[in-house]
Nucleic acid binder design. Structure first.
Length: 492
RNA sequence: GCCCCCAUCGUCUAGCGGCCUAGGACACCGCCCUUUCACGGCGAAGGCACCGGUUCAAAUCCGGUUGGGGGUACCA
């Protein structure tokens, strides 16, 4: 049994889209599942749109997701180069073979002429296809065109009868009519670059790709590619077309639906484990009860047989939930590592971190862990732990600190804290209970004003944890700050 | 226009002729826990697009309709 070789072949024209990431993931899982080889190939034949920067972004995104490739950029391999722009002579070689065997020919029609004829075909309700008029050009005719300054393209001479069958691992056998569906398409552009449908075949064949796993949008192109494989005498690989990813409005997922690039998700603090898990569920499912899968589990359980046929809507809420699940499972030390860049960026922590500061940060994370959906949330949720001039949420002050007795309650708490041995629940709670009697209020009526006073908001971890973390000095200062703030408001 | 693909709760999906009164997860709603917010626990609501067949029996098979998606480039 020959070993599995699959590839992911992005074109470096922008960020890595989640659709591309999902395709890369399925290929990677398939390779790992079958102890095969995962090849990364950069399809940069569109010179106008491809950039080195975009290539780097894609490489970074794959690295972040943990999708390591066995052959490709940086790594190299026996079937390189892995940039299409460096394989031009190969494409020329195989195009020449097709010319020599009579399966390709020069076409001198200009884009304008082609477009005009296309419009005509549309108007007449005909199939849109190349009419083959350059198929039998004489040498004189070619010379005449050249003298006009025309630069030819090379077209593939497609089959003129019969049907082409795509044996798809996800969809079964799909039949295409050769006459109406496969025309003499361009394989070499006038700028000397191969087109996708040609280069992809040459590369996949030469790189010994055994399974082509790619987006559904390529299904219609497959018969063209199969005809090239056959014309060149290459064995055809197995195909598996996986469903598209859509936005909430059921149209193809794109930038206007919000975050769609892997880089954006990385920047917002999504864990790679959550991204991979979520992406794996877009177009694939295991059984009726499991949704959380570790990467080893995914590798063990992934199979093309269970890939679904219908397009999947990208559900950001489910991704967020899943990210929360993985954050909660993270050891505190690791959570600290991922939170650190966000804290630094917010200016809460500097480059140098003392052991005491790290200990403090770890204790904060212990309280915040169950409250995070995105790692980026850690900044807003921990602000008052790091800055003393934290903002007061106006509507919360209005709601909580304008109640009668607030002044007295704060003063009472101030005195309790001032004399307390420790700011833990065991010490404080009995004292607070005394206050309940004294003011005729419930625990919530006591704790909420304290919370707003020391954090500026009505949302925080348990109050005893907050007070203890803040420490006596800061708690007293904050109560004073709040009292001063309230006094000022009265004057206004 | 033509061709191809697809069709189970709002969303992702389980289901591959009888285990289905259609299961799970997210979201939503209610309750519990509770000092707020989360977490956690419990519960409710919610779907086989439609019409014909085949069959003793269909969400599952076949055909059509409708709807959605993709392709039809000197983009990939």
């Amino acid at each position: 049994m020959s070993s599995v070789r699959v590839r992911f072949a992005p074109s470096p024209t922008g960020d890595l889209h989640v659709g591309g990431a999902r395709t890369a993931l399925f290929n990677w899982l398939f390779a790992r599942r079958h102890s095969g080889v995962f090849v990364l190939r950069i399809e940069d034949t569109d010179a106008a749109r491809s950039t080195d920067a975009a290539t780097q972004v894609i490489l970074d995104a794959l690295e972040y997701l943990g999708l390591d490739w066995d052959e490709g950029p940086i790594k190299g391999g026996a079937y390189g180069p892995y940039y299409q722009s460096q394989r031009l002579d190969l494409y020329a070689e195989y195009a020449t073979k097709l010319m020599e065997s009579g399966r390709a020919y020069e076409c001198y029609c200009t884009p304008d002429e082609l477009d005009q004829r296309r419009q005509e075909q549309i108007k007449q309700g005909q199939n849109i296809r190349y009419d083959g008029r350059c198929k039998h050009l004489t040498e004189e005719e070619k010379r005449a065109f050249k003298d006009e300054g025309r630069v030819p393209v090379i077209r593939f001479k497609s089959l003129e009868a019969g049907e082409t069958y795509v044996e798809d691992l996800v969809r079964g056998t799909v039949k295409f009519d050769n006459i109406t569906q496969v025309d003499d398409f361009v394989i070499f552009k006038s700028d000397g670059m191969p087109t996708y449908n040609f280069a992809v075949v040459v590369d996949d064949a030469l790189m010994k790709i055994t399974h082509v796993i790619r987006g559904d949008d390529h299904l219609s192109n497959t018969p063209k590619q199969i005809q090239i494989y056959e014309a060149l005498g290459f064995p055809t690989p197995k195909f598996a077309h996986i469903p598209m990813i859509l936005g909430p409005d059921k149209s193809l997922l794109s930038k206007r639906h919000g975050a769609t690039s892997v880089t954006q998700f990385y920047d917002e603090g999504y864990l790679a484990s959550a991204m991979v898990n979520y992406l794996s569920l877009l177009g694939w499912g295991y059984d009726d009860s499991q949704t959380i899968f570790s990467i080893p589990e995914l590798i063990e359980k992934f199979s093309l047989e269970r890939v679904s046929k219908n397009p999947a809507v990208f559900d950001i809420q489910k991704l967020e939930w899943m990210n929360g699940v993985y954050i909660r499972e993270l050891p505190l030390e690791e959570l600290f590592e991922v939170a650190l860049p966000f804290w630094r960026k917010a200016g809460f922590l500097s480059e140098e971190i003392s052991p005491e500061m790290k200990e403090y940060a770890l204790r904060i994370l212990r309280e915040l862990q169950s409250r995070l959906k995105l790692v980026a949330d850690v900044v807003d949720l921990s602000r008052y732990f790091f800055v003393d001039d934290y903002p007061y949420l106006e509507e919360i002050v209005e709601k909580i600190l304008t109640k009668p007795q607030t002044e007295e309650i704060l003063t009472y708490v101030y005195d309790v804290v001032k004399d307390a041995q420790a700011l833990d629940e065991a010490t404080l709670k009995p004292q607070f209970q005394v206050a309940l009697e004294k003011f005729g209020i419930k625990m919530g009526d006591l704790i909420q004003p304290i919370r707003v006073a020391v954090t500026g908001t009505n949302v925080s971890p348990g109050i005893y944890d907050v007070l203890e973390l803040l420490g006596k000095e800061r708690v007293l200062a904050r109560i004073e700050r709040t009292q001063a703030m309230l006094k000022e408001r009265e004057l206004m």
